[in-house]
Amino acid sequence: MKIIVCIKQVPERDAQVRIASSGKWIEESDLQYAMNESDAYALEEALQLKEKHGGEVVVLSAGPERAGTTIREALAKGADRAIQVESDTLNQLDALGVAQLLANAAKQESPDLVLTGLQSDDLGYGQTGVIMAEIMGLPHASLILNVEKTDSGITVKRELEEGWFQNIELPLPAVLMIQSGGTKLRYATLMGIKKAKTKELKKLSATELGQPAAPAAALDKITQPQKQKSTQIISGSAKEAAATLVEKLKFEVRVI
């Protein structure tokens, strides 16, 4: 099976994100970046399918130069090669625009399976994979935890709300959006990290892939969330704060 895995580089989880002076984006200087969490699960699912059935795992990532470090991380974990759609202006597109770039790059590879993460940890549109499927003319399923290959295609386990699941059969080729937690993530080995340096990383410019659509939904402004509820913040040392909290739990909340 030839599997494409879409991987996005996003600000690291604990990074302090600040709003840029334009008010339309975040301040990117001195931010740390990491692999989007659900994409790591998509990569793991792809690597396990390859280990079982053979084939190739190709990483596809759109982003500026810096995304290269996240791509190398995926190669170090075992992906065979990578394609980077280089663009510094992705944040001017919406999910449809980015999906068009990714779908056009993916089409050139004629994959059997395209995996994306369920949702990006920065913009959180939760759509890119579904839109790619639509552009590529392929069936899709989202919120997928596991993938089994069958004689006629694949059977996937889809998460439903409140602890329910469902199996779905799809023909190949298909596009899946992968939810976290279906498999256990591997770490890159030293050997893997070494090998990653020699693996192919093909760069495509966004302009080569055709002009993406102007945004149907434009991000106009970024702001701090409005505070809704006033939390009583308990200050002091850990010990003092703990003592005060216990007083409150005893005399105000009455649970102790």
Partner: peptide, 21 residues
């Protein structure tokens, strides 16, 4: 979860995106 699964595809067919969540 159901809307997450089909609304982006519907939007794409219309040349639109879902303004989600």
């Amino acid at each position: 979860y159901q809307v997450r699964d089909y609304a982006p595809a519907l939007a794409a067919r219309l040349g639109r995106v879902l303004i989600g969540d």
